[in-house]
Amino acid sequence: MLEVKDLHVTVEGSEILKGLNLTVNPGEVHALMGPNGAGKSTLSAVVAGKDGYEVTSGEVLFEGKNLLEMEIEERALAGILLGFQYPVEIPGVKNIYLLKAALNAQRVARGEEEIPAPEFMKLVREQLSFMKMDGSFLQRAVNEGFSGGEKKRNEILQMLVLQPKLAMLDEIDSGLDIDAMKVVAEGVNSLRSADRAILMVTHYQRLLEHIVPDHVHVLVDGRIVKSGDKDLANELEARGYEWVLEESAA
C-alpha cells in the first residue's frame, strides 16, 4: 500500500531523513518509534504533503502511484489521512461543515452523489457517540477551545467518518490521560481491517498497549535502524533507545 524507498528529506537546509525505507501492506498496523529529533514526524508530514519539506531523493508510492506528485487534497482523496499531533484550531468553521465538505469531496471524487443530510447525520452521530463526544461538538468551530483530549478525539472522529485506507497518527497519544487514551485507542482499533493500514508515530510505548502493532520500527537519525514485532516496543520501554543506537553504530 505505502512504499517509502530511500527517502531523503531536508528541512531548512538540514537533512532530517537520510534514506528511509518502509513498506506498509493492507491490514497491517505499524508503529514508528524513536528518540526526539529522529525524524518521526517528518515522514508523516512528507506523506501528507506539508510545505517546507524538500525531498532530495528517493520516492514514496501509494498503491503504486507517485505520492510526491499529488496535491495535498488528492492524497486525502486517494485514502491517506493524517491525524495531527497538534490539531489546528479553525475559528468560524463548524465541525459539521468540515466533516460534510470532506466526506462529499471524497464521494464526488469517486463519482458518487453527495450524501443526503439524514444519512450523513446518522453516520456522524453514531461515530460521535462511539468517540464519547456529545452533539454540541458538531456545532462548535473546529478544535476551537477544545481541550487536548477533545482535539485528539476529534481527529479520530474525522477518521471514523472518512474511513481512510491509510491512517497516519502523529503522536496521537501526547497529552492524553488514560481514559481519553482508551477512547482514542478504541476508535483507532475500530478502523483496523484487512484492507486498511495504520501507521502510528509515537515516542512512548504506552499507546502500543492499547493499539497493538504488527510491526515496530526504530527510527534513529533519519533512518530505520531496527524493525521487529510488538516485543521490540516492550524492549525499548524496558531498556530505552541507547542499546539500539549502539547496535546500529556497531
Binding site: A48, G49, K50, D51, E71, I72, E73, R75, A76, L77, L81, L82, F84, P87, V88, I90, V93, L98, A101, A102, A105, Q106, A109, V142, Q158, L162
Partner: peptide, 8 residues
C-alpha cells in the same frame, strides 16, 4: 493545509 489534508 489542515482542511486540504481532509480532501477539501
Amino acid at each position: 493545509f489542515a482542511l486540504r489534508t481532509r480532501g477539501i
